[in-house]
Nucleic acid binder design. Structure first.
Lengths: 356, 356
DNA sequence: TTGTATGCGTTATCAG
DNA sequence: CTGATAACGCATACAA
């Protein structure tokens, strides 16, 4: 036993390809080939190299490889500024599905931002222009842009998810929101509802236009006036969904000709809205039916259980990754710039016929 | 106008340091210094270089830098297998606080995993041993380990957050769970409660031991028997919190000497539990008080609004990053291996005196 | 203060 | 099929 003070545990950088080559008794370039392209090397040497690599516990250095081939294997996800605006409840699921699909294809997921201040914008652009990332999935309608640089000019494949940005030339993975709202509204009309409250997210964005549009289409289809639906929310400032629902409840209280059905554009909005109107003694769904968007797991356990139009997040995540990797593979294949995934209404007790 | 078919938009790799150097009329190494260490270069040339860099829209290549200095600026976060086990509701907040703190210090956040299967384990270890990441924040009690490699031997600074892993030698950022449960239980006793139901997460993990222990301490402190508290949950398999709550409600129904107060170890559990027992006609808090853990935003809008012990996520995220960057700075400073952040009880209507 | 030269760990090109 | 060698973009030791 020897005393070992002053032992300096230096940056243990792990075994290199050179170490593997030495142990296997071959050239370093042969190791590279054996590992990357097992077919293009003699079977016996391949075995030898594999054994050496395993014995040393060799793990290739990803950054060196990226630098050499000029391509990173990191994909970044760009989130909207406030997590709680709309789909806060499903963000973990979104990340999960995207990450899983990426890993299976040898890519990594980096979180570019969770705020949307100038510091974050700059950070996102550094990631893009600094060669750190190979592509981006964006869940916001605003492309990062600051002091001259814009993500649009980064020469980076970008796929939009949740929001339709095909106008801006981005392949987009979206749900059939318009149709979904049209159908659910039609169903509400069939149940006997004639006055509606629509609780909006950011006014004029894709979701707002599509969903509100779908509601109007249903009204027209049933021969009802568009005046039958009131709007609440729609502020342009970022607000948490919960906050919007609270305000919508206040708006509701002020309405003279009370709606009997509410269409909320996120579960958060619906949950806080319901909480507030129940306090005033209203019964749901007796006095008021509510349906919302997102399909958060918590909806099942609300009182009453909440009808919600599910975002098929798993499917969308996979589609987004597939599109992105497709764009990375061959840069100029734009088969269809918009992929529509069908969403599904989960019908629960919060929706019923209005009582007279 | 010329026809330009066959235009091959080649990998536009952007301006390099060499380009900046050329434009500024200096050597490439001078540019490097001017950008990294503005003090060690003549003021006039610095200005010239800055101007050239700005004009070209130069962004340094992060991977090349990392490779050169032998250190990445990417931190990975390792999440527990199932997002919905416990703290699903606060994951976005956790990510947000960590990411913000990292960005401010020039680091990036990478998501290592969202599952915990073998593929994910391997992936995490590749990230660690492949030099992609510089450090890790782990929110799970299980250190990735597969075919010989273990994260513990990666020579990587690791900080544990939420769970106490100081036994394993990891600096840990945790809340004072034991104390918090002791206090809230004491308060329940003061209100007149004498029978309790405790809904557990994974049995025997840090949270379980601390929280359950806190409850027992309160009972002893009040001269009550430990038999006063029943346990539910605690399965070793991964389950969503919502599922656990549903099972707990079934367990509750079978109890003969009914508890009048429930301590749930996550908001999800409490929410689904409440939903189920309310169906049986029970009034909360009239018949049954409920308090839970996490401080999810949704608790405010439950019916009744849910008392919850908040996880001070913002503070914990900052602390975790501070600890990690500290460990990166000088490798052998272990001032205190455990940082305790105080959690706070948010008192709402779900907790009250039992009615006779 | 500035420039020259070398190397980080890997892949790709070319001979052999 | 395999080996020597030159890059990838940048940072640093050293020389000027």
């Amino acid at each position: 036993m020897k005393k070992n003070k002053d032992v300096l545990v230096e940056e243990q950088s792990g075994p290199l390809m050179a170490d593997v080559a030495r142990l296997a008794g071959v050239a370093i370039s042969t190791v590279s080939r054996a590992l990357a392209n097992p077919g293009r090397v003699n079977e016996k040497t391949r075995v030898k190299i594999d054994a050496a690599a395993k014995q040393l516990g060799y793990t290739p250095n990803a950054m060196a490889r990226s630098l050499r081939v000029g391509k990173s294997n990191i994909i970044m996800i760009i989130l909207p500024g406030s997590l709680y605006y709309g789909a806060s409840q499903i963000i973990p699921q979104v990340l999960q599905s995207i990450n899983k699909a990426l890993i299976q294809n040898g890519y990594n997921l980096m979180i570019a931002n969770l705020d949307r201040d100038e510091e974050s914008e700059r950070h996102i652009l550094d990631l893009a222009f600094g060669g750190t990332v190979r592509g981006a999935i964006i869940l916001s309608s605003k492309l990062p842009e600051v002091d001259g640089r814009s993500l649009a000019n980064a020469g980076l494949p970008i796929v939009s998810m949740l929001l339709d940005m095909s106008d801006a030339g981005l392949p987009s993975i979206v749900t059939n929101d318009r149709e979904a709202v049209r159908e659910v509204t039609t169903e509400l009309i069939r149940l006997g509802h004639r006055r509606f409250l629509y609780i909006a997210g950011p006014e004029g964005n894709y979701h707002d236009v599509e969903r509100y549009g779908g509601a109007l289409e249903a009204l027209r289809g049933a021969g009802l006036s568009e005046q039958a639906v009131s709007r609440s929310g729609g502020s342009l400032d970022y607000q948490e969904g919960f906050e919007i629902g609270v305000q919508a409840a206040a708006d509701f209280a002020r309405l003279t000709d009370k709606p009997t059905a509410v269409i909320a554009t996120s579960d958060d909005m619906a949950i806080s809205f319901i909480s507030r109107v129940q306090r005033t003694g209203l019964n749901i769904p007796g006095d008021l039916s509510v349906v919302s968007f997102d399909g958060s797991p918590v909806c099942e356990f609300c009182s009453p259980p909440l009808s919600t139009i599910e975002q098929p997040v798993e499917e969308m995540g996979q589609a987004a990754v597939a599109r992105l990797l497709g764009a990375i593979g061959d840069s100029d294949n734009e088969p269809e710039t918009r992929t529509v995934v069908r969403s599904r209404l989960i019908l629960r007790e919060s929706m019923a016929a209005p009582r007279r």
